[in-house]
Each structure stands twice: as structure tokens, then as C-alpha cells.
């Protein structure tokens, strides 16, 4: 329990540092930060709206402390002001629409890649002298050597263009109204196959090798020999005795990967024109929509910290020795 409280404190501190950094950044820019920040609006906003954004960013009259507190308040109340790009829609709204798709894409492909990768890694190392253990890891190593974009474009070309059996744009068929009905769900799944598939294909090898390295260490332990001498089934020895322990070091890597998977999905969203956060970020950068960009970066920070914290909780659950 102590451990978890300590970790929570650590992540809150990290979050505070991140948002403070976000606060300071525009103030460290050369010249007039406000001009830099709002030159992109190109007169699409009137004075009162500009003033609202200024205030939201804490660029108001008063001491720096007052400015900082106002800034904190706007974050806590999720009032991030209007987007420059999609004015007058608020940043919160823009993000609220895009974020679920990114979470779906990033976490969905990570989870599938983890399940496949860890299973293959466990099996291949436990049966390392067999056909599977000898053949599959090198093949995966070969596939994972291509840069992501190359793999994604090959899939794009084969399944989306040549065979033309899978959609290569959008998160669902725009003719459909979103809701809990089969047409929509099927459409979402179909549209996710290529973007997710490309991320899974590239991600799996990492987990196979992470797991295999951990397994090889564990398989040399005496408790594995004892488990075998006990006449337990090899499935049980492989999963409960070896896999269970091998996953501990991998859990740390998983925590890191959650953050990276969000970053990775940005590229995927661009290739497959998928309407997630990455797509919005790209548009925001092109349009110099600072409020939007800052909010997205903030979300990435929160996502990574939350993911790490969840990983800590899982770690405690996996390894009873830690909670002490």
C-alpha cells in the first residue's frame, strides 16, 4: 500500500512539473509571446475572444503567481478555450471527438500485439529446440526490421488498393450514423483492421523478444526444474511457473510502451487518414493552433503518467514481494 501511495505522489508531482512547463514555455519565447501565439488566428477572432484565450492561458494582468493559479484553474475545470483552427468549437470538444479513436487504436493494437507477442515468446522459448522455437522468432525479427511506414504502406497498397477489400480512410463509413447497431460496429472494425494490423505487425516482434529474453533467464531457475520434477503438465510449468515470472520484467516495458503507442498511432492516423488525435495534431500544427497543440501534448503527458501508474498497480498485483 505504501508503495502505491508513493508512486501516486510521484506521478502527481510529474504532472505538476509538466503543466508548469507548459505554462512557462510561451513566456520563454523571444519577442512578444502573445503575438507569436495568436498571429495564426489571422483576424478570425475578435478582441473579446482573444482576451478570453489570453486569460485562459494566464496572460492577464496581475502577478505571475496569480497568472499561474488562473492557469491551473483552467486546466482543472477542463476549460481550454476555443480552437483557433475550428473556431468557435472549443479545444475540449475537438479533443473529445478525436481522443476515443486514438485510445481505441493505440491501446487496441497494443493489447493485441501483447497477447500475440507474449504467447509466441513464451511458447517459442519453452520449446526453443522445436520447429516453432527455431523458425518463428527469426521470421518476426525479419519483419520487424522494416520501418513502420514501409510496412504500413505495403499493407495499404495490397489490401486497400490492389485487392481493394479494406477501407483506407476514416474511422467508419461516413454514411452511417454512429450508435450501438451492427452496421456501425462492423464498419468500425473494418476501418480499424489496416491501421491496427500495421501497428500489431510491427509491435509483435518486440514482445516476442522481450518475453523470450525474460523467459530464458527464468527457465534456468531451480524452481522450474522442481516444477518439472513434480510432474506438472508442461503447459502449467510454461505459463504458471515460467511465464508468470518472466512477465515481471516485461511489465516495465509494457508501461513504457503505452506512452509510445500513442505516439505511434499519430503516424498511423496520418497514413490511414484516421480521425484521431494524431490527425488533429497534424492539422493543428499546420494551422499553428497553439491552444489545440498544447492541449494535445498535455493529454499525451497525462496518458503516459496514467499508464505508468496503472502498470505500477498491475506490478504490485503480479509480484507480491513489492508491496512491502
Amino acid at each position: 500500500m505504501h508503495y502505491i501511495v508513493r508512486q501516486l505522489g510521484f506521478y502527481l508531482t510529474a504532472f505538476l512539473i509538466a503543466i508548469s512547463f507548459n505554462f512557462m514555455l510561451p513566456r520563454l519565447m523571444p519577442g512578444d509571446p502573445l503575438d507569436a501565439l495568436f498571429s495564426a488566428t489571422q483576424g478570425r477572432m475578435d478582441e473579446t475572444q482573444m482576451a478570453a484565450i489570453r486569460e485562459m492561458y494566464g496572460f492577464m494582468d496581475g502577478s505571475i503567481i496569480e497568472q499561474y493559479l488562473a492557469y491551473l484553474y483552467s486546466i482543472i475545470s477542463l476549460d481550454l478555450g476555443p480552437s483557433v483552427l475550428m473556431f468557435p468549437v472549443s479545444v475540449t470538444q475537438v479533443i473529445g471527438q478525436a481522443l476515443p479513436w486514438t485510445i481505441f487504436l493505440a491501446l487496441g493494437s497494443l493489447i493485441v500485439a501483447l497477447i500475440i507477442g507474449i504467447s509466441i515468446g513464451t511458447y517459442a522459448s519453452y520449446h526453443r529446440s522445436g520447429f516453432f522455437g527455431q523458425v518463428v522468432p527469426p521470421v518476426l525479427a525479419f519483419i520487424s526490421n522494416f520501418p513502420y511506414v514501409v510496412t504500413a504502406l505495403i499493407l495499404f497498397y495490397i489490401f486497400g488498393v490492389q485487392l481493394d477489400i479494406l477501407p483506407i480512410s476514416y474511422t467508419y463509413d461516413p454514411d452511417l450514423t454512429p450508435g450501438f447497431h451492427w452496421d456501425f460496429i462492423l464498419s468500425v472494425i473494418k476501418h480499424a483492421i489496416l491501421p491496427m494490423g500495421s501497428m500489431i505487425l510491427v509491435g509483435v516482434a518486440t514482445w516476442v523478444f522481450n518475453m523470450r529474453n525474460a523467459m530464458i533467464n527464468v527457465l534456468g531457475e531451480d524452481y522450474i526444474t522442481m516444477a518439472e520434477a513434480k510432474g506438472l503438465s508442461s503447459t502449467r510449468v510454461m505459463t504458471r511457473y515460467a511465464g508468470r515470472n518472466a512477465i515481471l520484467p516485461v511489465a516495465t516495458a509494457i508501461a513504457m510502451a503505452i506512452g509510445f503507442s500513442f505516439a505511434g498511432s499519430i503516424l498511423t492516423e496520418v497514413v490511414f487518414n484516421y480521425q484521431g488525435l494524431g490527425n488533429v495534431l497534424l492539422k493543428g500544427i499546420v494551422a499553428r493552433d497553439y491552444p489545440l497543440i498544447q492541449a494535445i501534448l498535455l493529454i499525451l503527458v497525462v496518458a503516459v503518467l496514467t499508464a505508468n501508474f496503472i502498470a505500477d498497480l498491475v506490478y504490485v498485483w503480479l509480484d507480491p514481494r513489492i508491496s512491502k
Partner: peptide
């Protein structure tokens, strides 16, 4: 195995799985 012959290994300290 174990039904007929069981083994107390040399490093009995390490022959218990630490997380089970």
C-alpha cells in the same frame, strides 16, 4: 515423477517459485 520419486534440490531455497 513425484509419485514415485520426489526431489529436494541442492538449492532448496531457490526451488520454490517466489511469486506463487
Amino acid at each position: 515423477r513425484w509419485n514415485n520419486v520426489s526431489v529436494v534440490f541442492q538449492s532448496a531455497m531457490n526451488s520454490l517459485n517466489p511469486v506463487i
